[in-house]
């Protein structure tokens, strides 16, 4: 009985699995658990990539660590924008003002914006679905963080019930965003936008002036 059997999954590469099963039957298995997906946040800091199996948390953010704070920019986005001739001071300021999101930046083509969605902008359902697809092959567990910028009890209960129904053993952190932020000091004056005012919050229509 191996992990995929518990999930009633028939893996591809049947011959190789059969060979493994024969060997296990003949000699036994030294460890009871074989695979885990670790959070790897320190390693990610060092390697300059994103944690674990997570989508990028932002195209521009800082890591707060014991030894200080470090700015991290999404290198892939920079390459893409440079190739398109769009890596301009204006776009950089826009990204900063949008807290590392490129969704509202009209100068960028739609496919770029879609590709560089942040963890906050992706449907969490998709992250859970991906974790579920991996689960038959991960016998210990996976570090699955979920991201809700603006959690509500309704969203949380729906999300965690879906994760439970999908058969996931566990999830890890829930990350949320602060309700308001420190006013920025390094982007040009006069272009402050109140995030609460521009985010026409469909999930929060009673607080959106445009929706009232």
């Amino acid at each position: 009985m191996l992990q995929p059997d518990l999930w009633n999954v028939i893996p591809t590469q049947a011959e190789r699995w059969a060979a493994v099963r024969d060997k296990v039957a003949a000699t036994g298995l030294r460890n009871s658990l074989l695979i885990a997906i670790a959070p790897t946040s320190t390693i990610a800091s060092i390697a300059g990539c994103y944690e674990c199996i997570e989508p990028q948390v932002s195209n521009l953010f800082k890591r707060e660590t014991l030894s200080g704070e470090f700015l991290q920019v999404n290198g892939a986005l920079v390459c893409e924008l440079k190739a398109r001739g769009l890596w301009t001071p204006q776009v950089r300021d826009d990204i900063k003002r949008a807290d590392g999101s490129v969704q509202g930046i009209g100068a960028l083509p739609a496919e770029t914006r879609e590709l560089f969605r942040t963890a906050w902008e992706l449907p969490q359902r998709a992250l859970i679905d991906l974790a579920t697809a991996r689960a038959p092959y991960v016998d210990q567990s996976q570090s699955l963080n979920l991201f809700l910028a603006n959690p509500s009890i309704g969203k949380l209960s729906s999300m965690y019930r879906y994760a439970w129904q999908s058969g996931l053993k566990s999830t890890y952190y829930l990350r949320s965003r602060p309700a308001t932020r420190i006013q920025q000091a390094t982007v040009a004056a006069g272009e402050d936008t109140d995030p609460a005012a521009i985010a026409c919050a469909l999930d929060n229509p009673e607080h959106c002036e445009a929706c009232q």
């Binding site: 320190t42 932002s58 953010f61 800082k62 890591r63 707060e64 700015l71 900063k96 590392g100």
Partner: peptide, 21 residues
């Protein structure tokens, strides 16, 4: 000052996380 203008990501084991509601 650029550092205060971007969103933060802290490791829960290293720092008290301040970005939450």
């Amino acid at each position: 000052m650029e550092l205060q203008d971007v969103q933060e990501l802290s490791n829960f084991f290293e720092r008290r996380v301040s970005a939450y509601q």
